[in-house]
């Protein structure tokens, strides 16, 4: 059965050969364009970093000052003593990890059912999944909260896990990617006597690594940056996530903008690391390019 899908090592798609052919001036121009675009994109982040090195009342001034001659490094020490940053980071890491794991696992599992197993009522059910994406959360927030209270889940980290882990996004996304896998491949495996679960585990999962990687990144970032969910569900300060902690920090120290920006910078860094690690899965084209037929 494995004969059909010996994954070839990556034949990097199209573009490398183009690069090989592009001449030097073009490449320099390309880098220049990328560099310029990078500056525009990074400007707000630069401002965040800069503000974190100012004193509070220097942050908002007219006109904006783009350099600071006298950086206030102490903000980075102060934030640890003035806030409960360590606990917030811990909670957020925990949530991001558990939610991502569950979302990716249950989402891709369900997606296989939607994409490759034919059964009556499938499309209606799938439409229900997409349909819920189209309803703004603030309109069903209260009924959901009441439901969660009945399940005794509020004010615990598990409420956020429950809230985020079973969303429709992962199912939708993975289904789309599974549909790109040719049915003939699966039929061949079925004829070889492989069960649907075996096909999912031994064919689909290895083939969908880039999709799994992007779902992982997106879920992790969404959980990391979620504000309204933790705001409604987590009340005890020792359960706060980084976003809600930062926001409460803003209302507590409403003029301490420099510290707020310090916190914002620190809150982004772990995500950057995760992204740098995860993005390489989009280059190597791990397995999909090995598909024959």
């Amino acid at each position: 059965m494995t004969t059909v899908l010996v994954p070839e090592t990556a034949t990097p798609a199209e573009v490398p050969s183009v690069t090989r052919r592009s001449s030097r001036p073009w490449r320099i121009l390309g880098y220049a364009a990328l560099g310029a675009a990078g500056v525009v994109v990074l400007l707000p982040f630069y401002w965040m970093v800069l503000s974190s090195l100012k004193t509070n009342n220097e942050v908002f001034t007219i006109p904006v000052r783009w350099i600071t001659t006298d950086p206030v490094w102490s903000n980075y020490a102060d934030i640890w003593s003035k806030s409960n940053m360590g606990a917030w980071l811990g909670n957020t890491v925990f949530l991001s990890a558990v939610v991502t794991l569950l979302q990716v696992a249950t989402g891709s599992f369900a997606a296989y059912g939607f994409a490759k197993v034919h059964f009556p009522g499938r499309d209606v059910l799938f439409l229900a999944y997409i349909g819920t994406l189209a309803v703004p959360w603030q309109s069903y927030m209260v009924p959901q909260f009441v439901m969660m209270t009945k399940l005794q889940l509020t004010d615990s980290l598990w409420s956020i896990v429950a809230l985020q882990a079973f969303g429709a996004l992962g199912v939708f996304m993975m289904k789309q990617f599974y549909e790109t896998v040719p049915d003939e491949l699966l039929d061949a495996a079925r004829i070889d006597g492989m069960s649907e679960y075996g096909i999912y585990r031994r064919i689909m999962l290895p083939l969908s690594v880039p999709a799994l990687a992007s779902l992982t990144l997106i879920t992790a970032v969404t959980t990391w940056n979620d504000y309204m969910g933790p705001l409604i569900y987590l009340r005890s300060p020792d359960l706060w996530t980084i976003q809600i902690g930062l926001k409460s920090f803003i209302s507590q120290y409403n003029a301490e903008y420099a510290l707020i920006m310090t916190g914002s910078v620190l809150s982004v860094l772990p995500i950057v690391v995760v992204f740098l690690l995860g993005q390489r899965y989009f280059v190597e084209g791990i397995a999909t390019t090995g598909l024959k037929g």
Partner: peptide, 26 residues
């Protein structure tokens, strides 16, 4: 159908209780 549903189930239980029912109430 049974196989299909078994794939959906782990996700669907959470989805049903926490999303579909509240949305339906709307």
């Amino acid at each position: 159908t049974a196989v299909g549903l078994s794939f959906l189930l782990p996700n669907f239980i959470g989805f049903l209780i926490l999303t579909l029912i509240p949305v339906g109430l709307l």
